[in-house]
Design a protein around this nucleic acid. Structure first.
Lengths: 153, 153
DNA sequence: GTACAAAATTATAACTATTCTTTATATCTA
DNA sequence: TAGATATAAAGAATAGTTATAATTTTGTAC
């Protein structure tokens, strides 16, 4: 864990950096400053960001970062199962540092993607034994709380 | 139903056309030749086709059909819940005439999208009551039987 | 420490699915 | 038939993503 009640900034940074580093090596990805930064960003911003969002957020502090690197790195991390690629929003691919199966919600109005608490996920069983399953996604669409309230008015 | 053991072609055609027409009016979509053709194509080709595939399949017999019309029609049908829009394959949106919730499988190698028999779908329960859910998708990814066999060799 | 090879990153160009805009066509009603 | 409205078509534009080629960084042998 990288959050402590009475931590100072440097300990905080040391800890998450160590966690990111071990996650990378664990997944067989050779670390680099870009890979560290992108994975750390995903871990610390669990909002299922788009490439655009990640790039815009990181480039001020990493001015040489290129969008291609963000794309390549996310693909690499996803192939090594360090992160999850979410195909939900037809406009943009989204990314999630949480790799365990959990449901998502996509707001058709504002485009946000949220984690969604859904019961019964563990009860799902694929009955076709000819296909080789590697990934699973459960998602819902509709209106998020904010957009639904707006619509009511 | 539009399939009979001993049907002749004309009865077959009459029946599916009637079914398509009633589906459209049921869903509040004003019929047109293009809308009929596109919905009928989806019903008769349950392969979760892309816009490209639908367009290429229909345009020989409907030479004036345009891709824009295919896009517009599929969006219209989807909004009226006459069909389902599948966001699974990050390359292309796919469409399905079956509107009830059922799981899909996307082959990462060949790109095919298949229906998948999954137990426990009815046991899923969204626990967040602040969002307004209108759609649900469950999908799996991996290798289909053919691609998996190829890989074994 | 230097030189070379391999890997990673960057910048740019290309591609392609989708949407937008405008124009044309068909349908409906008076 | 005329006018209004809805629908469809054609082509241009947009934007997310990928491919290419050049540059930089890293690792390793000497």
């Amino acid at each position: 864990m990288y959050r402590f009640k009475n931590c100072n900034q440097s300990i905080f940074i040391m800890d998450i950096k160590a966690e990111i580093l071990s996650k990378l090596t664990e997944c067989g990805v050779k670390p680099s400053p870009q890979r560290m930064a992108i994975l750390q960003f995903l871990v610390m911003h669990p909002v299922h960001p788009t490439v655009e969002f990640i790039y815009n957020s990181l480039s001020p502090k990493m001015p040489t970062l290129s969008k291609t690197t963000v794309y390549n790195t996310l693909k690499l991390l996803s192939e090594h199962r360090a992160i999850q690629t979410l195909v939900i929003d037809e406009k943009n691919i989204r990314y999630d540092a949480t790799t365990m199966v959990h449901a998502h919600f996509h707001c058709k109005n504002c485009g946000k993607v949220l984690d969604l608490h859904v019961k019964g996920l563990n009860g799902l069983k694929v009955k076709n034994h000819h296909v080789k399953v590697t990934d699973c996604q459960i998602y819902y669409k509709g209106l998020c709380e904010d957009c639904n309230n707006l619509e009511m008015e």
